[in-house]
Design a protein around this nucleic acid. Structure first.
Lengths: 129, 129
DNA sequence: CGGTATCCAGCGGGATACTG
DNA sequence: CAGTATCCCGCTGGATACCG
């Protein structure tokens, strides 16, 4: 068992099965929001901007199934359901934190790269007819 | 300008624009493979198991547009095209490394959580009719 | 060798209406 | 309040054929 060096661990096919956890449209938002503690369904719906009721339910179930969060139902009227990260979920958020930070830090750089690429494309289009 | 504490940076809507870089089916594989240095098209096609010619081209163009990698064309016969990470791409891979490592380390735990969840579902189905 | 072009199936996900 | 159910559109991505 060697200690891994600076070399990045390879992303194998198995990894994608797990990366799909956060590779969909909403999971990382939800997990990120739950870092504070338990949230109720409607609170999440307002916090996660633009999510539909259906996708919130679907995504929560998926994350619950994968052991990322727990769903606690208080059977009162009106119903009270709260979601919070499991230790596994917290560790996922912890692992994703550098990538989230990287995203926040490189938004403008990437936007610039896109603009430059698109412009160089339209330039060559004019040149080549 | 406060120094961020242990609290995870929030994933805002902007972030998804960037996370989409790696949230598709193939990007992270390709970026991960390119950590070694420049690769040619066909080499990548063999390294990234299961990818089609079309998806390799599409994904490489997207990553190139976003400034993650560069495409160098040697106009000889037969054609020789090599791809390699930009500094931006290398920093992306660096930021994604913890998440990739987390995925590798929790494959079994997540599979177990899924099995347990599915079994508890079928149990309650039998109970409730 | 390294692409493009075209066609098409599957599913992610939005809108809407209904329920306990 | 916290969901389900249904419909449907668009995009991702696979298969295949052709090109410089």
């Amino acid at each position: 068992m060697n200690t891994p060096d600076t070399r990045t661990e390879a992303a194998t096919c198995d990894v994608r099965e797990v990366l799909d956890l956060v590779a969909d449209k909403w999971s990382l938002y939800i997990v990120s929001n739950l870092s504070d503690g338990p949230w109720r369904f409607t609170e999440l719906k307002h916090a996660v901007d633009g999510i539909s009721q259906r996708m919130l339910t679907v995504t929560l179930r998926r994350l619950q199934r994968d052991g990322i969060l727990t769903c606690t139902v208080h059977e009162v009227m009106p119903p009270n359901v709260s979601y919070q990260l499991t230790p596994l979920g917290a560790s996922l958020l912890h692992a994703a934190a550098p990538l989230i930070a990287w995203s926040n830090g490189h938004l403008t750089q990437i936007a610039a790269a896109r603009t430059e690429y698109d412009q160089s494309l339209s330039q060559s289009n004019r040149t080549n007819g």
